[in-house]
Design a protein around this nucleic acid. Structure first.
Lengths: 349, 349
DNA sequence: AAGTGCTATGTAAGCGCTTACATTCTGATC
DNA sequence: GATCAGAATGTAAGCGCTTACATAGCACTT
């Protein structure tokens, strides 16, 4: 793009010195009137503010940042905004940070590790003072780069026991183990799994492992033809359920889905195939989106408070910025919401 | 929050001068090696890069911004990220701007005009060089403030004929007129409207006006008991449909909804009330979310390419930043997607 | 009347970088 | 061999602000 050089930069041309002159004070007082009003006598403050308004002046960000060594900028790196889950995290994070005067800079990786690294580099080059990053499977050295600049960061969405990073999120493996437990307790012995792409996505990997581990404890395993990986869409959920049901061999009685969109797709397709849920087939989702309680039957799913992740991440970073030693955040609770899409399998009933 | 003062700012402590010394060149060459590599002899560039890597140095954003008068920051103001529509706009905007090295700063107004004004003020104070703002009904002077700083901006989501602002969006009034036309052509004469809060929301106001105007042309009007305003949720859609159907007087045969969530709610409630769609009741949405084609019956709705809004807004701002006189963007097309939730009313059939 | 402790303001030294301009050097041209 | 254009590098002047420190002014004490 045009590297512009010394082009018009937007300031009205007025500087602190001009405001100072107009108000009959020094630049120090002008600065104080804006940044520490309580240190300036009310009437002088008035004069300064009026002068500034008259000239349309506002402290120049770069000058202020250079002199104060504060940018009041924080960054958030997420895979994409096209997913409610991340959008609401960012929304909550932004709201919280903004209350403390910190503005949020956003970077999307599109689930690509190189893009993630680039976005982080760019955000650092823009002067972020803190960073929230989704997941911990990133290019080696990414977190070191961040830390080397003295920028506090927090990992979101995963809370893997033993992770070296401060993280705000829930234990994905445990959450899926919980889902498996629920289905096992109902008597299911044949499972299928429909999940989103797992590459560079530690959350998804952890979920799959949680499920497999729970099954393994019962001496069970997923048949390869009963595992589908693809885009986290309703459409892929439908396709997947169909191909699972058309596969040779015994049919599963329970389909575990990586998120609600996939589960809703599976639900729709089950109906299209004439299968009754949960009598013939149990289906579970993950996230508990608004639609989940409106489906027919309503969807059994795992509720995760994404906004809370954003809020806690913001609080953690804010504490770091304030120089307060922040306590390591505990894992968030995810809660199994039992609705009507799961039940005992017909054969064992 | 802690106003920190001269605290550790994250830089490793190394400055351009240190890198220059280590590489045996001047600071000018260091700067050029990073910002205009083609102007530096390859071997010297190598030396500089190696020295920088060794010291963990990277140009300090504030110093660079101050000297170059470029921040490479752009801002986007939206009501909330909790709405797919805005989230995908921001996503697309970010992707496009990031390709040109511009980082996106985000501000949410939560549909509140004061917060909107504050967020814009803050983003200006952080040095944004361009701004995308949803809608044009804002505190008086907001756009003047932006323009006074010489910051190019663009309004998104509305494309009101006669608006003084450059805008990227579609004509909301025309879009709803189009929906009304469709239903009128099918023979409907009794309409209901379920819509989201209209305060400070010119898009919603325009849509309502478009519908009313289309009806007025046929000498028709909405009965007050057939108009419901509230949160844009499935739940409110359900509640609203029920109260409309329970209201005294003749029932409407067509329910126009402000977005798909409301329409999906209405659809669900219609089914719960035992009404068949579209035989007894036609329902329309707006946005064409993924779920819209999966409902039963699939939803007739208006498709708007929100990502395209983000892309075009980004392109417009980029052109401004490059100093190229940007052409006034034409209105985007919205397209009526005819599905099975609308049909001829029973009475007139 | 001199001393004391505040508070409000001013002075001036940078913050770390970019870039216009000056300088040096190279190789080609006359 | 002198001249010159052009490329690569260096010099140094800011960019606009904040803030440590110095100073002045004031209301009290003693």
């Amino acid at each position: 793009m045009g590297r512009g050089g010394r082009e018009r930069n937007g300031q009205t041309g007025a500087r602190a010195l001009d405001v100072a002159a107009l108000a009959g004070v020094s630049t120090a007082t002008v600065s104080r009137a804006f940044n520490a009003p309580e240190k300036v006598a009310p009437e002088i403050r008035e004069k300064v503010l009026k002068a500034a308004a008259e000239l349309g002046w506002m402290p120049h960000p770069a000058g202020a940042a250079l002199a104060s060594r504060r940018t009041w900028l924080a960054g958030v790196l997420i895979p994409t905004l096209d997913n409610d889950v991340f959008a609401s995290q960012v929304g909550a994070l932004q709201t919280r940070l903004s209350a403390d005067g910190v503005t949020v800079l956003i970077g999307c990786s599109n689930y690509d590790a190189d893009q993630a690294a680039n976005q982080v580099r760019t955000m650092l080059a823009r002067g972020v003072e803190a960073l929230a990053v989704v997941g911990e499977s990133h290019r080696p050295g990414l977190f070191e780069t961040i830390a080397a600049r003295g920028v506090p960061y927090v990992v979101t969405y995963s809370h893997r026991p033993g992770s070296p990073h401060p993280s705000v999120g829930f234990d994905n493996a445990a959450a899926f183990r919980r889902i498996a437990r629920h289905l096992l307790d109902l008597g299911h012995r044949d499972f299928a799994l429909i999940h989103q792409p797992s590459i560079d996505n530690d959350r998804v990997v952890a979920r799959i492992e949680g499920l497999r581990a729970a099954l393994a404890e019962e001496g069970m395993a997923l048949r390869p033809q009963h595992v589908r990986e693809g885009p986290a869409s309703i459409t892929f959920g439908r396709q997947s359920l169909r191909s699972i049901m058309e596969a040779a061999g015994p049919r599963p009685t329970a389909v575990v889905c990586g998120n609600d969109a996939l589960a809703i797709g599976a639900l729709i397709e089950a109906r299209a195939l004439g299968m009754s849920v949960p009598e013939e087939l149990s289906i579970t989702g993950f996230d508990d989106v608004a639609m989940a309680e409106q489906t027919d039957p309503p969807l059994t799913t795992m509720r995760v408070d994404n906004a809370e992740i954003g809020r806690q991440a913001a609080d953690y970073l804010l504490a770091c910025l304030a120089g307060r030693p922040p306590p390591p955040p505990p894992p968030l609770e995810s809660r199994l919401i039992l609705r009507a899409s799961t039940g005992a399998p017909a054969r064992t009933a």
